[in-house]
Design a protein around this nucleic acid. Structure first.
Lengths: 245, 245
DNA sequence: CGGTGGCTTGAGTGCCATCAATTCCCGTGG
DNA sequence: CCACGGGAATTGATGGCACTCAAGCCACCG
């Protein structure tokens, strides 16, 4: 029925007035750019924010769209991808709880962001947000720190794409996901993998078949256990040695 | 004699008092983070700056060093690389005139920066520079913009590493280099390639042999002409079609 | 003139992509 | 409750692109 991407049915972006009592009580604040803002700054930010949610498989924005808003993820996960003219795709990464979309306040989005499951976000109209940032160096500071972190993630990923074998890529991917879950307080040994195998493949520069084979191999070797919707990490040490740092 | 990297002889980092009359007369200012600063800001920045130069093959800093300074390149080119524990290397990029090293004001450098030829830089002691940045949002703004640009470069490069063939990689590399030279006013059809084949290979996730083969193939097809120290771009259109966007 | 380092070229191999079924999973309807 | 259908994931067979190993070329230099 559907050829690609677009979900069936009528569900699309829905906006609501905030359901959280306030930013001050937000579960996500401490792991996002909002952390360590003063009470005053937080109040100003809150005044600009609008809570929205996104149904699975729906795009929040697309590569090339002009960016008239920026977002903070408060629930769920999104896939960030870019397309080559000939259709080849690369998944730049996955935005998790606490991640900020539009860090650099770009004129146009350079990636497409699609919900992997139900997603909730704080939306900020860009013009107003940029004005607040210009007025509050402290907030700009936080954005810049975050951008620096993204830059090191990007470097790690370039190293992975350029110089690692398929098995190392998959092992590294699982470990980096565990690390990012850890950062937001999710420390279960069972990793949720809300993205599909094709998404992982396009993230790691592999084919879906190779991803599947490597996961199966890791499972056979008892480093992981494949479970519906994710994997259980059985032998973190072994994964780390396979990831080659 | 030397096993790797380290140059012979006694040449090392040398510091000088500024030889340029002032930042205001700096040739490089308009293409770097210093562009569009007010006269006052420029004066403050100048007071912190120290002009240094670096001999070919010498490291400015190494991956893991604590970053007690940041730099602006005013002449020459540096290779930015990271090492995997087992020795595999990835060249994250090449810093050219106008590029800023230490954008994110990190605690430790995440890459090693080595001079590919004679290099001149403006050095800023990090503590003082950070204090200036904290005081001058305008400067932070510029740094952040630049970081955003670096982030898009990183995304382009990830796409290249993950989803492109050897020939596309080499063609894209030449074009992106031309684009970057263009940004700093170097518009000659002859591209200087101060880095070696191994550096290009480690940048593109290929082997030196493959890089060499692809360059000679492009030469045979009359898309480029290999000349000592660089290449002459004969057929930009052809390169663009080979680069597949 | 031999030595050295960078680059190119050639032959063989291996890892991962490609092509092709098959199985698994899960929601749907009989 | 089970048959059915469709998408996702897995598994198998084959092949090609890029890697590996190795030799040769060339410019430069002591």
């Amino acid at each position: 029925m559907q050829t690609t991407g677009e979900p069936p049915g009528a569900g699309h972006v829905c906006t609501h007035h905030r359901s959280e009592a306030s930013c001050a009580e937000c579960q996500v604040r401490l792991v996002s750019v909002c952390a360590a803002l003063t009470g005053e700054e937080l109040g100003l930010l809150e005044a600009l924010s609008q809570q929205i949610h996104l149904d699975p498989r729906h795009a929040l924005f697309r590569q090339g769209d002009d960016a008239n808003a920026v977002y903070n993820v408060t629930e769920g996960m999104l896939r960030l991808s870019r397309l080559l003219p000939d259709g080849r795709r690369h998944v730049m990464g996955f935005a998790m709880v606490g991640d900020f979309l539009g860090l650099a306040l770009p004129a146009r989005f350079t990636v497409t962001a699609e919900a992997l499951g139900p997603v909730r976000l704080c939306r900020f109209e860009k013009r107003a947000f940029a004005a607040l940032v210009a007025d509050k160096p402290h907030l700009l500071q936080r954005l810049h720190e975050r951008a620096g972190y993204e830059l090191t993630l990007a470097q790690d990923h370039m190293m992975l794409l350029g110089r690692r074998t398929a098995e190392e890529k998959v092992a590294s991917f699982l470990l980096s996901l565990r690390e990012r879950y850890g950062r937001i307080g999710q420390t279960s040994v069972t990793l949720e993998l809300p993205m599909g195998r094709q998404d992982i493949a396009d993230h790691l520069g592999l084919t879906i078949e190779t991803v599947s084979r490597m996961l199966t191999r890791l499972d056979r070797e008892k480093a992981i256990l494949i479970v519906p919707g994710g994997v259980r990490l059985l032998d973190g040490g072994r994964l780390e040695s396979l990831a080659a740092a």
